[in-house]
């Protein structure tokens, strides 16, 4: 079997397994995994930019737009279908990414990072100051329906969990296809040498613009799913610490593989909730230590463990 085929099969099996065990998982774990996988979609978008050498410190901008789109549709219209509202979140986030992309795509390195941060903080400022959007408290998100079906009680959480998993599987597959396309393969070349890319007949700025839109759409879907799962939105979703969390998970997961984004995001949420449980006042310290250890001992992230394992197996056989 070819390598991409083997990875896809492995990924599909993993998704089916985590979907199947859900009814026997404790409710807190279902909620935790739901948020973790929703956020992993944002991380997928970060990985796309990361491979190009770009680190967005303001990806929460698109995350919050996706979430608020879902919340506002719930508040002002009678549309409740989860697929429709998530699509709307993705579209609004994509449009926002397309618009800010005209500016962002012209910058690199720290300038790109800070400009992206600035954009997200503008949205944060607007959300905090706008009374009709709930100001700092945010507001409630109406529960979604699935093609008219309205799950209740424990089934609501499970349905959202499966919904998140479904989107995760589809997006992971699409992103892995993207990485094998001509446009997706140009990440490393752009990071290595923009001049050569231009002289092969490609506009680097336009390509980065495309990557921004793709990552914005992923973040929008992640935010929309998170809003449905938590049933609440607030400006913290656009705050820089939210963006920082995504960057944290990207470092933890590594940009090497699509699957690592999901594992990394799950590990991050687990470590965070355990840390909050153990030392409610100082949980950031534990998270910081994990980050430090990752950078020191796993500079290419959790994803590189799988590669190491396989290389050892290949060497043995």
């Amino acid at each position: 079997m070819t390598m991409p085929a083997r990875s896809s099969l492995l990924g599909a099996l993993a998704f089916i397994a985590v979907a199947a065990v859900a009814p026997w998982m404790p409710p807190w774990l279902v909620s935790l995994a739901t948020i973790a996988f929703a956020n992993a979609l944002v991380v997928l978008g970060l990985i796309i930019l990361w491979r190009t050498g770009l680190v967005p410190f303001g990806q929460a901008l698109f995350y919050a737009i996706g979430a608020y789109a879902v919340a506002l549709i719930g508040r002002y219209t009678s549309v409740r279908d989860v697929f429709v509202v998530i699509l709307a979140g993705a579209i609004f986030a994509g449009i926002a990414a397309y618009l800010v992309g005209f500016l962002l795509a012209r910058y690199r390195e720290i300038f790109f990072a800070m400009l992206s941060l600035a954009m997200s903080m503008i949205l944060y400022g607007i959300l905090v100051k706008t009374e009709t959007l709930g100001s700092t408290d945010g507001f409630h998100v109406e529960a979604g329906t699935f093609f008219g079906y309205r799950p209740q009680g424990v089934w609501l959480n499970l349905s959202i969990y499966w919904l998140v998993l479904g989107f995760s599987a589809v997006m992971a597959w699409l992103v892995s296809l993207y990485f094998r396309s001509v446009a997706g393969s140009l990440s490393n070349p752009i990071r290595d040498n923009e001049i050569r890319v231009e002289f092969l007949g490609i506009s680097v700025d336009r390509l980065i613009h495309l990557k921004l839109v793709v990552s914005g759409i992923l973040a929008g879907i992640g935010g929309a799913l998170a809003a449905l799962a938590v049933q609440h939105v607030d400006p913290a979703m656009a705050y820089w610490t939210t963006s920082g969390g995504f960057v944290f998970v990207t470092i933890l997961a590594g940009a090497g593989s699509v699957g690592a984004a999901f594992v990394g995001s799950l590990v991050f949420e687990l470590v965070r909730s355990i840390a909050i449980d153990l030392v409610p006042g100082e949980w950031q310290m534990i998270l910081g230590t994990v980050l430090l250890l990752t950078i020191l001992f796993l500079p290419e992230g959790l994803g590189s463990l799988y590669g190491r394992l396989r290389r050892r197996k290949d060497a043995a056989s």
Partner: peptide, 22 residues
């Protein structure tokens, strides 16, 4: 391969999104 793949693609974002590198 990057150089050849770009040479073989049409000058459009869509074409490059759907054309595999290999």
């Amino acid at each position: 391969r990057i150089a050849s793949a770009i040479a073989n693609s049409r000058d459009s974002i869509l074409d490059r999104l759907f054309r595999p590198i290999d």
